[in-house]
């Protein structure tokens, strides 16, 4: 399964990059995320409840980040297991293009899924994954904008 999309976020690139590394913002943005623990700058552990068609499961997984190309680009690999519901493995490359006050975010993700999830038919999984990704970035863009507003406020009053 492959997912490719781009989205314009109304915040400067440094802020977007910082937000992508902020466990609080990520946790609030990831649909169904119950827990997100940052073990180091490159190691994250997450617990996410996912519902795809008739399958609802709690996935536990680890994500490893590769920030060597930051802030223009970074990549991540991860895997998660949802017990009887199945498992998922994936990788993604995220590119951030500086557009002044805005940032264009491009992502290119590949995922392999197995177990009950895969049996439900890739059409269902693909469309659900797209929907979840869209939801993530919509919330993410909102959170970044909020954060920006908060960080700008004290500067104005000062």
């Amino acid at each position: 399964m492959e997912l490719k999309e781009e989205i314009l976020i109304p915040a400067p690139r440094d802020q977007v990059y910082a937000a992508l590394n902020d466990p609080e913002i990520l946790k609030e943005s990831i649909p169904g995320c119950e827990e997100l623990i940052k073990h180091s700058d490159t190691e994250l552990e997450a617990k996410v409840v996912l519902k795809i068609g008739p399958v609802k499961a709690r996935f536990g997984g680890n994500v490893t980040l590769d920030p060597s190309g930051a802030p223009e680009q970074f990549s991540l690999v991860g895997e998660g297991s949802g017990g009887a519901a199945g498992f998922a493995k994936g990788s993604a490359t995220v590119e951030l293009e500086d557009r002044g006050e805005e940032t264009l975010l491009r992502y290119d993700a590949k995922a392999e899924i197995g177990g009950k999830l895969a049996q439900l038919g890739s059409r269902l999984v693909q469309s659900t994954a797209k929907k979840l990704a869209a939801k993530f970035f919509a919330t993410f863009a909102e959170k970044v904008t909020e954060a920006q507003a908060v960080s700008e406020q004290p500067a104005e009053t000062a």
């Binding site: 392999e112 899924i113 197995g114 177990g115 009950k116 895969a118 049996q119 439900l120 038919g121 890739s122």
Partner: peptide, 8 residues
């Protein structure tokens, strides 16, 4: 991957 694609 050995997933059964026709399980329902």
């Amino acid at each position: 991957m050995g997933n059964v694609k026709t399980g329902t």
